[in-house]
Design a protein around this nucleic acid. Structure first.
Lengths: 134, 134
DNA sequence: TATAGAACCTGTAGTGGCTACAGATTCAAG
DNA sequence: CTTGAATCTGTAGCCACTACAGGTTCTATA
């Protein structure tokens, strides 16, 4: 089976932009594909699977360095333990981000609620911004 | 009352790094301060207040463009209505981010839970990453 | 077969919001 | 007077792309 997909076809299949694929190739996340005589990239099914994996990892918020590890590009395929560790570290940081955003959301919502909504520059939101830590 | 604070003193008072202050000056968020004969920046209380306002706005997640508006650097001091609009738009995007992160957190937690935790490369997390949308 | 326009190519610069560094000068304490 | 901290300017780097310029090639239609 030969590689027959153009970069555009791969992009569509994996749900990733063409420029992103070339970027991934440059930084070593995607392998260099074969080329036609005139220099166009040709991809196969393996590339689709790999790119989907990368996309999904990114959607779940893993940084590209983590994706590199998950792909086994650092020290070979990671063990389940290693993957679990990576996922848990990431999960912890996601939970932290959620908490931070929730605190922020409350402060913001309170401030907006207190707004007089007039044409004056006197504004509860501005007051909140002018204060020290909530 | 003369401006007597060094950039380091201002940084400490406002809880912002020295480099960040110079950056804010460069992009027009902070006004150019006075200088000593030898060229060192000198700040006053007004600068402290302003910088604290900026810092607080950033802590609440407003992008610097919004901070610019809040400071009245675009079209003069914004009305309470305008501020409220800005805050509500920002609040909406924060809530969206929270929802996205929560969905992500669930997926990630489920995957990590399903992990066999062995030394094998067979891993539930990897399986999840290899799949299409959750 | 001629041609138009879509898709592809490479390389570079820009995004946001800082942070870090290099290499020079100036300040403050002992 | 000396040492070390603080400050100065300017530039490059971070992440993960995205956009653009200026060119070549492919493909579909007439």
């Amino acid at each position: 089976m030969v590689d027959h997909l153009s970069i555009g076809a791969l992009a569509e299949r994996a749900g990733v932009k063409v420029e992103t694929i070339r970027y991934y190739e440059k930084i070593g996340i995607m392998p260099e594909p074969g080329r036609t005589a005139s220099g166009h990239r040709r991809y196969g099914i393996g590339h689709v699977t790999r790119l989907q994996f990368v996309r999904r990892s990114r959607e779940l918020g893993f940084p590209l360095e983590d994706v590199r590890s998950l792909l086994g590009l650092e020290d070979g395929p990671p063990s389940c333990n290693e993957v679990h560790d990576l996922a848990m570290r990431h999960l912890t940081s996601v939970r932290k981000r959620i908490e931070d955003l929730q605190a922020l959301e409350r402060t913001l919502a309170n401030a907006a609620d207190a707004c007089a909504l007039g044409d004056t520059p006197d504004c509860a939101v501005i007051d909140v911004l002018g204060r020290q830590a909530p």
